[in-house]
């Protein structure tokens, strides 16, 4: 039986993990994304997402070096996102060894990027990241870009369907309302998107306890759940979440 996936995610800037991952300081270099990736593989993570939040050109080449080193040491799938705007960017990242790329703002501005990426490198490596925020007036979720700073007026569900039709292999769905609050994923949004498309949906934003993972896999109908600080600050561990889910009857590796 196919299992639900638990995916730790971390931000990387100029080759270093941005948030201080406090629990690793004694044994490993916690600021090194490669060391952290290897740690999470050993801890039972099903996949990893590395988001490059570097703006500079030098930073980009540092990130490519990290992707190459991660490939040498990590034997679970990993996705690289952040600042990808062209097919050349995608090629470079995949060639360095990443399994998937995630595109967000660039895909909204240029939807053809999804189709071109899928055609050249396969649907499986194109993850379309969508940041959604609830609009009370419309009673619907709207797509935000530029890290949440810009509204698009587009419906999340419509955009998810369009991304699928263009060749997205998975949707990485972040709730802007829930992100950072630690009181659970947006279950309604996740369920609506998961039911609207026939590709896997990775839920993101709001994980604060192991129960939240259970909720998003059952009520939210998510195929995978992404979390950052809850793991980095050891509020819970991948192993603890998985043991809990297994006990509750969720199919887990």
């Amino acid at each position: 039986m196919l299992t639900k996936r638990i995916i730790p995610c971390f931000d990387v800037k100029n080759g270093r993990v941005v948030k201080n991952v406090s629990f690793l300081t004694n044994e490993r270099d916690a600021g090194d994304p490669v060391e952290l990736s290897a740690y999470y593989e050993a801890a039972g993570a099903d996949e990893l997402v590395l988001l490059d939040i570097t703006a500079s050109v030098e930073g980009r080449s540092t990130m490519m070096d990290i992707v190459r080193r991660t490939t040498e040491q990590v034997f679970i799938p990993f996705t690289v996102g952040g600042g990808i705007t062209s097919v050349d960017d995608i090629r470079e990242i995949l060639k360095a060894g990443a399994d998937k790329v995630s595109v967000n703002t660039a895909a909204v501005k240029n939807p053809k990027l999804i189709a071109e990426g899928a055609k050249r490198f396969g649907q499986q490596c194109m993850v379309v990241a969508i940041d959604g925020k609830y609009d009370r007036n419309k009673g619907d979720w709207e797509v935000l870009i530029h890290g949440g700073r810009t509204s698009t007026g587009m419906s999340v569900i419509d955009w998810a369907k369009k991304a699928e039709s263009l060749g997205a292999g998975e949707i990485l769905l972040t709730s802007f309302d829930q992100d950072g609050k630690k009181d659970g994923y947006d279950l309604t949004l996740t369920r609506l998107v998961s039911e609207a498309v026939s590709i896997p949906v990775i839920a993101s934003g709001g994980a604060g306890s192991k129960e939240h993972f259970y909720d998003v896999f059952t009520d939210g109908k998510a195929d995978a759940a992404l979390a950052a600080s809850i793991f980095h600050f050891k509020e819970t561990s991948v192993g603890e979440v998985k043991a809990y889910l297994k006990k509750k009857g969720v199919s887990i590796r």
């Binding site: 039986m1 196919l2 299992t3 639900k4 996936r5 099903d46 649907q123 499986q124 292999g169 998975e170 026939s198 590709i199 896997p200 195929d223 995978a224 590796r253």
Partner: peptide, 11 residues
């Protein structure tokens, strides 16, 4: 009527 591709960890 199920999700395709088959993506993820399976036994």
């Amino acid at each position: 009527k199920f999700k395709i591709p088959h993506v993820g960890w399976n036994e």
